[in-house]
Nucleic acid binder design. Structure first.
Lengths: 316, 316
DNA sequence: TAAAAATACTCCATAGGTATTTTAT
DNA sequence: ATAAAATACCTATGGAGTATTTTTA
């Protein structure tokens, strides 16, 4: 037998299967109820059984323990010294035991446990905070560990089992399950010096400033990369690709520094300064899509509760 | 149901008899052994039963808990998250539970508990220290509370249930059980100024100095009082009764102060100074007898162990 | 003597045994 | 292909029920 785990457990198991063979929770609970009621008959009612079997079970417990536990009197049935001792033990141990059973059940249903969740920056600035709050409220015993990472990093971590779920940009590899959970329009970020030259509040692909385009590296977000370039191409344009950056805030900072323009999620505007001017884009502009990815075989735990809560929020 | 005792116990009992009905220690132990072995077959051997019933019991536990506890694999059977959670609970709670069963049994056999014991001064200076040491060594879980008191005070306390056993001077009331455990010869204590006049090392009742006799009050120790006077009477003497005192050391001090002579237990000599001279007494001298008294109905607990240990010391 | 618990006896649910099949690597 | 666990089926222990007796204040 292994030597991990609590040292006393093996001993206790040994004792339970030899010396205390036959003593079970039912008998202990029966005794405890009689002791607290001080009356076999009322205890039997409480336990939903008739009095004789209750007497017999308590007697069996006394016999197996080798000690009389109750003093049967005409007016009252009171614990003996041994009975008080046992009652004290039970009072200390049965509540946490019941709690432990409940926790095991909750863990089995995925209502308790640890979830390692990755997310890309745009998720962190848009729907994720609200979702995390909702999940914590619904399942307070699920412990979340959140880690910001790019989509491709998350795909590897998911495949390795270092991550349970990831909020990523599509497309996800075929080996992973994926479900879209969020879509957000893109807006144009341009250096403030261009604001006067582009007064319109909404621009189309044809109207955009002829500046270097700052984008995510293709390999980090192939989907988004391709969609943005397709938007330009549809208007017959092939923008110069400027500096690449793997964080949305970095891209906005580069725009502020005047290095080019960028199409970024609308939610990023909050965190930008006055050096950046913003314009809406027309309906043909791509939307940034975020979804959750997970290993198909990893369900059955807290991940199910996450997906379930996610689905409920999408409907509601 | 009463409101005394641990608040959570009633809840736990309720849960055990409804929600977790049917879950018993046997099933929990079976699961724990399988989890620790990582193998149904070996666990079955360890538990002295065949593999199928073990599988069925674990399955029944899983079903009642509503959670799968073990991942059955070709090479190894490992706990699921729920299994680990339950195993942790069991590791924490089963050892103290087994301990509690053992303590209840020990309490029932009187091998554990509190004993309130009274004793008269001569007992405290003679055999009691050794006996207490022996009792503590044999039954370390019996907690002794020792109180010095006169015999008649102890008789009242024993009858009232404020004392479990008392080391007293006979005779004990008929309502109490009594067994003699110690007898000790008496010696003569006389003021040092008389030493030269009584050079013999052993004296008889007829030879004793004609000084006031210092004794216990008759009502505090009627047996001893009567025996001492009978010793004098047998030699045709009727000594003057001097100052009375209810403590042996006090009597010896009075002798030292020159107020008279006294017949006291030999063991008291250790605690006396140089102002007292000692003489042995002849064979007709009474002996001080000390015995243990107890309420006849109070047996069945640690008192039995005390009487038993006492009996063993008298034999050995 | 009357309330409370213990005993007598019956029934059936279920724990455990043996033989066999299914599963998973 | 093979070890491991699950399933099928049987037997018997013992838990729970009703009726009754014994105990005790």
């Amino acid at each position: 037998m292994g030597d991990s785990g609590p040292a006393g457990l093996d001993d206790a198991l040994q004792q339970l299967s030899t010396r205390w063979r036959g003593i079970d929770l039912r008998q202990l609970a029966y005794f405890a109820v009689v002791a607290r009621e001080g009356h076999f008959g009322r205890a039997a009612v409480r336990l939903r059984l008739s009095q004789p079997p209750l007497s017999m079970q308590v007697k069996a417990l006394e016999s197996r323990l080798g000690a009389r536990l109750l003093d049967r009197g005409r007016q009252a049935t009171v614990p003996t010294a041994a009975g008080w001792a046992l009652l004290e033990t039970l009072g200390l141990l049965l509540p946490p035991l019941v709690e432990g059973l409940e926790q095991a059940r909750a863990t089995g249903r995925g209502e308790r446990g640890r979830l390692r969740v990755g997310f890309v920056t745009p998720a962190g600035t848009s729907f994720l905070p609200g979702f995390v709050r909702a999940l914590r409220e619904r399942w307070p015993d699920i412990e979340l560990s959140l880690n910001e990472a790019t989509s491709d990093e998350q795909f590897v971590a998911l495949a390795d089992g270092r991550l349970d779920a990831g909020f990523v940009l599509p497309p996800a590899p075929d080996s992973l399950s994926f479900r879209q959970v969020h879509a957000e329009r893109l807006v144009l970020a341009m250096p403030a010096r261009l604001a006067a030259a582009f007064p319109a509040s909404t621009l189309g692909a044809a109207d955009l400033p002829d500046e270097p385009l700052l984008v995510f590296p293709r390999e980090k977000a192939p989907g988004l990369h391709a969609e943005i370039l397709a938007y330009f191409a549809a208007a017959g344009r092939a923008p110069v690709i400027g500096q690449q950056a793997i964080q949305m805030p970095t891209i906005v900072n580069l725009v502020a520094a005047g290095l080019g323009i960028a199409l970024v999620p609308a939610s990023i505007r909050r965190s930008a300064g006055a050096d950046v001017a913003w314009r809406e884009l027309d309906d043909k502009a791509p939307r940034i899509r975020i979804g959750v990815a997970w290993r198909p075989g990893a369900t059955g735990g807290p991940l199910d509760r996450l997906l379930e809560t996610l689905a409920q929020r999408l409907q509601g």
